[in-house]
Amino acid sequence: MMPRFHFIIFACFLISISSSIHAGETRIAVAANFSAPMQRLARSFQEETGNQVKLSSGSTGKFYAQIQNGAPFDILLAADQETPQRLENEKLGIENTRFTYATGTLVLWSARNDFVDSRGEILQKASFNHLAIADPKLAPYGLAAMQTLSTLNLIDKLKTKLVQGENIGQTFQFIATANAELGFVALSQVYADGKLTMGSIWIVPQALYQPLHQDAILLKAGKDNSAATSFLAFLKTEKAKKVMHDYGYQF
């Protein structure tokens, strides 16, 4: 019995050191709008480098609160520029690691075909019961949606029809399950391989809202993690940009 037991312990030891030598691991907090392309990016990064990527997706505001309270993320891929900036100011993010990895596009989307017209005139007609947006206090895409409605002078008219998702992922789910007939989401959520996956959309003109520049930052926990720094480098490659472009992001 004893030799076998020792062998098992030795084997476990070998496995643990070999995995720590050859492949690192990095934990990344991802804004919900970037979740779909991020999964594809993580997969090809893992194939290329052998490093493991652990993803958590949610609202940027929630991640900020969690990071402030010691959440063990190495990288934040935010949906805005303010949050990474604030983390850097508070010394929770590493200086000179901040950069804009992508610029998002806001769309008005319905899961129904031919429901949203290509000029967004349905908003003026208000021929629907629920318009879903992400909570503007928490999610930059929600804020952009409110800016759009405000530029179009539609807030008073549509106020009673607004329903809020906690993040852009939940907003998408409200519309996808047809509980809300339409709503504002990120182009990346309804777009893959360069085309619309389902339903009908109006791509909101960029002039109607503040640009959705999305910044990444290396966090304190990831400072000496080579898997984390090499992922940030990978995000800047043409290969990564091609994937993001396929999901409708601009640069």
Partner: peptide, 8 residues
């Protein structure tokens, strides 16, 4: 409460 916490 949840929203207050998220919005800091």
């Amino acid at each position: 409460i949840y929203n207050h916490v998220e919005a800091m």
